[in-house]
C-alpha cells in the first residue's frame, strides 16, 4: 500500500508549493525590509495584527454553520480542553473522539 505514491511529486503541486513558499518568505522578510526604510503606521499595524484570528474565524464560521449538533458539541469540547490544558494534541483527540460519539447520538 505504501509504495511509490508516498514519494510522488506532481509538477503542478510542486509549483503551487514553491509559489506558497515564495509569498511566505516575502511576508517574513518584507516587514524588516520595510522598517529599515519607512515607518509603519500604528493604524496599519493594528489592522494587520487581527488578520490571523479573523481569518481562522472566517473559515470556522461557515464550516460549523454547515455542521450539526454533533460538530457544535465537539467544537465546544475542543475549546474547553484547549482552554483548560493548552494541549493541542489532547484538544484534537477530544474533538475527534467526541464527534464520533455525538454523531452516534444525533
Amino acid at each position: 500500500m505504501i509504495g511509490e505514491r508516498v514519494l510522488a511529486l506532481d509538477p503542478i503541486v510542486v509549483g503551487v508549493i514553491l509559489a506558497m513558499a515564495i509569498v511566505t518568505y516575502a511576508t517574513k522578510t518584507g516587514g524588516l525590509w520595510l522598517v529599515n526604510r519607512i515607518e509603519m503606521s500604528e493604524r496599519l499595524e493594528a489592522g494587520l495584527s487581527v488578520l490571523p484570528g479573523a481569518i481562522v474565524i472566517a473559515i470556522l464560521g461557515p464550516e460549523l454553520a454547515a455542521g450539526g449538533p454533533a460538530e457544535w458539541g465537539a467544537a465546544g469540547l475542543v475549546l474547553l480542553v484547549m482552554w483548560r490544558t493548552e494541549s493541542i494534541l489532547l484538544a484534537l483527540g477530544t474533538g475527534v473522539v467526541s464527534v464520533v460519539l455525538l454523531r452516534g447520538l444525533f
Binding site: V56, I57, L79, M82, A91
Partner: peptide, 15 residues
C-alpha cells in the same frame, strides 16, 4: 471522525 480534525484545529487555533 478524522474529517473533524480541521475544524478542531481551527477551534484550537482560535483559542
Amino acid at each position: 471522525g478524522f474529517d473533524f480534525v480541521l475544524a478542531a484545529v481551527f477551534v484550537a487555533l482560535a483559542a
